[in-house]
Amino acid sequence: MTMTLPLKCRCGAVRGEMQPRRAYTRATCYCKDCRAYARFLGDPGVLDEAGGTDVVPTAPATVRLTAGVEHVACMSLSPKGALRWYAGCCRTPLGNTSRNTRLPYLGLVTACLDATPQELAATFGPARRCVINTGSATTPVRATPMAFVGGGLGILVGMLAARVRGERGSPFFNDDGTLLREPEVISREQRRELERAG
C-alpha cells in the first residue's frame, strides 16, 4: 500500500493527498515571484523569516484532490508566467505548475500539507536543506551549493522518470489538458506593489 500525506487548506474545504516517496526534493525558494505570490494571498505565514517559501517539487500525478475542487483558483504574475494555484476559500497556497501540461512538475507549497514541521522533516528532509535564489532573500541566507546541485539533479531525474513512465494527470488540469481554472493575471502595477510590500 502506497503511503500518502494528507493535504488540506486552512479552512478544510479543499482536501487531498500526495505520495511523498515520489517527491523530487525539498527546497526553499527566495525569489521575488514566490514572495509576491504569498503577498497576493495575504498570507505572510507562508514565508520564513528571510522571505522564503518551502516547497516540495514533485510530479503533478502524485497529488490528488478529494474534496473542494470547486474552490481551487489560479493566478499568474504575468501573461506567460508560471501558474500559481491556491484554495480560493481561504487563500491557502497549493502549488506552482508550468503552463505546459507535458512538463511533469508541481512545486507543492508545504503550507497546504496537513503535517507538523517534524513530520515534514522526517518525510522530505529538513527545511532549508536546499535553498535557491538566495540573492533575493530579505535577510542573508547561507547558500547550499552541493544541496542545490543535488536538488536540481533530483528534479531532472524525477521529471525524466515521470516522462518515461508516461505519467499523466494533474489535479490542476482537466483530462483533455485544459486548465482547471483560467488564471487571474495581475497587472504590472499590482506586481510592483506586491514586490514592494513588506
Rank of each mutant, 00 (worst) to 15 (best):
T97G: 03
L156G: 05
C90N: 04
L156D: 05
R102I: 00
A87L: 04
A127C: 14
C89H: 02
G150A: 15
P126A: 15
R102G: 14
E119H: 06
N100G: 10
S98C: 08
A137W: 04
N133Q: 13
E119N: 06
P104K: 03
R102C: 08
P140Q: 09
A111Q: 07
N133Y: 14
L160Y: 13
A87K: 00
S98H: 01
F148T: 14
Y86T: 06
L160E: 04
P79H: 13
T144Q: 11
T110W: 08
T123C: 12
Y86K: 10
L153R: 12
L106Y: 00
R128T: 09
W85P: 08
N133T: 09
C90V: 03
T123G: 05
P126R: 15
G150F: 13
P145F: 11
G135T: 09
R163N: 05
R102D: 15
T116K: 04
F124S: 08
G151H: 03
N96D: 05
R128A: 12
L153S: 12
W85Q: 10
G166H: 04
L113P: 05
D114N: 07
R129K: 13
A111I: 06
A127M: 08
A161Y: 03
M146D: 15
Y105C: 02
I155P: 00
Q118R: 14
T97E: 01
L94S: 00
G158F: 00
F124L: 02
I155S: 01
P93W: 07
A87G: 11
F124K: 02
N133L: 10
L156F: 14
G166I: 05
E167C: 10
A161N: 08
P117Y: 13
L120M: 13
L94G: 00
M146P: 15
G107I: 00
R84E: 10
L106F: 02
R163P: 06
R128V: 11
E167D: 10
L94A: 02
G158H: 01
Y105S: 07
V164Q: 11
G81T: 12
C89E: 01
R91V: 05
G166M: 04
C130R: 06
V131Q: 01
P117F: 11
L94I: 14
A111M: 05
G88D: 05
T101R: 13
V131L: 03
P117Q: 10
L113Y: 03
G151D: 08
L156V: 14
V157A: 11
A127P: 10
T134W: 00
E119I: 12
G125L: 07
R84A: 00
R91C: 07
P79W: 14
V157W: 14
M146T: 15
S136K: 04
R102M: 11
T123F: 12
V149E: 06
K80S: 14
R102H: 12
G107T: 02
Y105N: 05
T138M: 10
T139A: 15
W85G: 01
T134G: 07
G81A: 10
G152Y: 03
R84W: 06
W85L: 10
P140I: 07
